[in-house]
Amino acid sequence: MSEETYKIRIKYVKSGVLKYIGHLDLMRFFQKAFKRAGVDVAYSQGFSPHQLMSFAAPLALGVTSEGEYFDAEFNSLESSEELVRRLNEQMVDGVYVKDVILLPEKAKKAMSIVAASDYLISFNNEDIKDAVLEKVPYLLKKETIEVFRKTKKNEKVEDIKKGIYKLELNGDKIYMFLATGSEYNLKPESVIEALCKEADVTYNRFDYQIHRVETYYKNANDKLVSLLETGTKIQ
């Protein structure tokens, strides 16, 4: 790979019917969008060169988000504003680019630095809403929060409390700030399940719409801040 490429990080929104498109298909979508937009994306070397691209924290199918990120490499740059404009000309309903930033030369891949995400949970099923919402202020007061978690090998009871940084009401929605990434990864579904258990309500994935708000990393001061702060706007 040539050394003169620029590492960039793209923030985008995934909503509406796009929530049914898995992250690998979305990656192919963006690769084609780059080609249509005619931006100067860098390719790998070898007999079948491909665009260098990697996602920060893949979203589960069915989840929407306004704080998604992926990394790419470009051979030459335009301003952030211009790149956003050109890429958005190539988007379809349900996906658009919010920002493009330039990363420092030695920046680590987004995937390896993601530490947390926050979510808003809304209800598709009004019947259980009040019962579940009522438990939100109390869950974190418990000493342990135990749920069944499936791993590749087995299913076991686990205390997920250490992965919940915040859990609060936000109007008639639930706001939660959770550990994400390689160190500890907690899915919002597990927290909803725990709330259901408290409320004595049967957990059904389709009673809820999960929406990711932002993706975070730990900065040099050990503070969780948006991935957007890993780089700078291109002027």
């Binding site: 019917v17 309903d93 349900g94």
Partner: peptide, 23 residues
């Protein structure tokens, strides 16, 4: 709006087959 509910689309293989919206 989609013709199929979230619950149906999430319960079948490759829901992207049924949502249209392609480039």
């Amino acid at each position: 709006r989609l013709a199929l509910s979230d619950e149906i689309l999430m319960g079948i293989e490759k829901p992207a087959r049924y949502i249209g919206n392609e480039v």
